[in-house]
Amino acid sequence: MPVMMRPQLQLSDAQRRVVQHLRIHGPTARVHLAQTLDINAATLTRLTQQLSALGLVEETPASPVTVRGRPTVPVSIAGHGGWSVGATVHPGWLELAVIDFRGQVLFEDSRPFAQGDPKVFARTLDERLRALAAERGFMRGRFLGLGVAVAGYAIGGDRNRRSVVDWIAPWDDIPLQQVLESVLDMPVWIENDAAAAALAEYYRPEIMSRHRSILVFFLGHGVGGGLIAERDLFVGEFHNAGEVGRLFPGDQPRPSGIDLLQTLRHAGAEASSLADLEGLMDSHRAVFDAWIERASAQLATAVHSGVAWLDPGAVVISGALPRAVLAALAEQVEAHCGRLFAGYRAPTPRIYASSLASKAVVLGAALTPLHDVLGARG
């Protein structure tokens, strides 16, 4: 078996703690970092100097407000010390995103891709990345790796072997990491698409700064989910945590994007893909409203169960649906859960609508190598 490749960037536990604190809490003065992390000032200074030399942290301009004595200069996450790529395949097209170490998007791209062979996918991606490196100088940064989000669950407890959807049938039950790395000659991580979306939702600053654990429902061609538990992606013993689609049999109405698409077609709408949903919202408002009412009740039952078992700080309704639909679903799920949680005196999770929508999958794929570098993933 080929040796698992790893990014060139390797951080010590102490360095990871500093980076994680800055990522969660934002720019922080060294004196406060030392106090919060229980590290003496000299050690903290040395750590930030090391991280600065790697291009991972930088000093933030001091506040114009002056105080007695030497002003403190906060340090923050820098972007130029590393970059990573995320990619995924949709029916008929390929999507990729390049992010820097801050998690900010440097480049997004999509192109037609009808070939299901994973080696062709890898060669297509390799050609595009080489062109990007020449055009934008990405190779001057520190490359962390490539995350690939796959629509399919793990087989035999191996996250690199997947039972996949029909449009990528050649990806089924093969060692995907080894196959892709043999073509790309770079570190590759394979992740379920909904789990990748959960990672992207968690890395949103307004989520990460407030919560340690979140439950994410991703609605697209199917119904998927992901759980961030204590700031890590929880995968389960067989790497299939979040396979919530099993709660909604495909031969019955379910809260998925494809189900909404079929509902609209039955109502006479001309729609060939999820991309057409946005343009139908005005002309078929009643159909959307009825579907949202039904789907939100289904999701609320799953949310109620998930909250009882997992006690997350937040629930995020995400997916490849128009943002207005996600917002309406979140609002109605929250109303349903308000009734389900009635009389329960402990804190209950806040329910968010995703602001990332379909982009969550490819962004989460790109975040996977970065998440691994920070030591948060086993």
Score class of each variant (00 low, 15 high):
residue 259 D to I: 02
residue 210 R to H: 05
residue 104 Q to L: 10
residue 282 D to R: 10
residue 175 P to Y: 12
residue 317 I to F: 04
residue 37 L to Q: 08
residue 302 A to E: 05
residue 270 E to P: 02
residue 189 W to Y: 10
residue 123 R to A: 10
residue 60 T to V: 08
residue 115 Q to Y: 05
residue 310 L to C: 05
residue 205 P to F: 05
residue 256 S to N: 06
residue 261 L to V: 07
residue 75 V to L: 03
residue 27 P to G: 11
residue 112 P to E: 13
residue 22 L to N: 12
residue 36 T to N: 12
residue 96 L to V: 03
residue 10 Q to F: 01
residue 106 L to H: 02
residue 226 G to H: 05
residue 30 R to E: 14
residue 56 L to Q: 12
residue 297 A to R: 12
residue 74 P to W: 02
residue 173 D to K: 05
residue 290 A to M: 00
residue 109 D to I: 02
residue 227 L to E: 00
residue 36 T to E: 14
residue 139 M to E: 10
residue 31 V to N: 07
residue 103 G to T: 07
residue 265 R to F: 07
residue 117 D to Y: 05
residue 307 V to R: 06
residue 176 L to P: 11
residue 219 L to I: 01
residue 242 G to V: 01
residue 267 A to C: 05
residue 36 T to H: 15
residue 216 V to G: 05
residue 245 G to E: 09
residue 22 L to P: 06
residue 131 A to T: 15
residue 70 R to Y: 01
residue 9 L to K: 07
residue 367 L to V: 05
residue 359 K to D: 14
residue 290 A to E: 15
residue 155 I to Q: 06
residue 117 D to C: 11
residue 81 G to T: 13
residue 72 T to H: 09
residue 95 E to P: 01
residue 50 Q to M: 13
residue 265 R to T: 09
residue 103 G to N: 11
residue 93 W to S: 08
residue 336 H to E: 13
residue 136 R to S: 13
residue 252 Q to S: 11
residue 292 I to W: 01
residue 224 G to N: 00
residue 249 P to E: 03
residue 119 K to C: 07
residue 100 D to T: 12
residue 331 E to K: 11
residue 238 F to C: 08
residue 306 G to P: 02
residue 377 R to Q: 14
residue 105 V to T: 13
residue 120 V to Y: 10
residue 264 L to D: 07
residue 219 L to D: 01
residue 87 A to Y: 03
residue 290 A to P: 01
residue 235 V to T: 14
residue 322 P to N: 15
residue 375 G to V: 06
residue 127 E to N: 11
residue 220 G to R: 02
residue 373 V to N: 10
